[in-house]
Amino acid sequence: MTRFTKHSQTIILVIFALYALAPVYLVLLASMRSEADLFNGPLSLPWPINTSNYLRVWSDSGFSTFFWNSLKISVAVTVLVLLTAPLAGYAFAKMQFRGREALFALFLAGLVVPAPSVIVALYGNLQTLGLIDTHIGVILPQAALLMPFAVFMMRTVMQDVPDELIEAATMDGAGPLYGFLTVVVPLARPGLMSLTLIVFLFSWQEYLLPLVVLQTETLKTITVGAASLQGRYGVDYGGIAAAGLIAFAPLVVLFLTMQRSFVRGLSAGAVK
């Protein structure tokens, strides 16, 4: 490769790195800028570093509540999916039963179902069940909408568990659930880790369900809170920037510390 080619390629790599990072960086700057500092232009380093935007958003605008609500819902959805999808994925991967293909096809179809396409009926159902304006009303449909992806991913993971080990466990007279918990789950740990991260990520990012289900201000999630903050204070860019950062900081930290698990999980289902 000529040096010219190599250098121009490096420039392309850098330009796209700027495209990826610049918006995040600029938001970070804006979130630490005081109002007096605003007129030095958006690229100047904020000085003195100012945490009042964070404090204001966190306590006055209710972001501490939104944050805990999001955490509670995301953890609940993740636990619910972890308790159900691995069992189903294992059944599809390793067990023989009538209707296996049809049931798996039913799950596969759900991979692409968008929340807005079911909301017309789902909303009424949640009303009938008395789940409107409750966190359960967000948790259950959200876990259900993520189920096809989770089951599909778990089936792929479980297929890699060697049959001999499962047979050895059942030979010892262990019941299927005992064998699953003692033999399969430990072997599938990396896959389960990926599933946990992805489900938590998707759940934290969800917007439509909490938007329509939750009405009480103190029940709302961080995505809904951030979106409504944008409307409320049209020009409080420091506050909005701080709110945005609070809303995605946990995800970025999770991603950076567990990049491998993330990428493996998100590319599950992609063709080799």
Binding site: A121, L140, L145
Partner: peptide, 28 residues
């Protein structure tokens, strides 16, 4: 191996998915 454990393994996921995704699709 009998099929019963398989259905029991599937049931929780299927119930959740059926109640909150498949049923609303049919209703819509």
């Amino acid at each position: 191996m009998t099929a019963r454990p398989a259905y029991l393994f599937l049931l929780p996921a299927l119930f959740l998915y059926g109640a909150f995704v498949v049923l609303p699709i049919l209703q819509v």
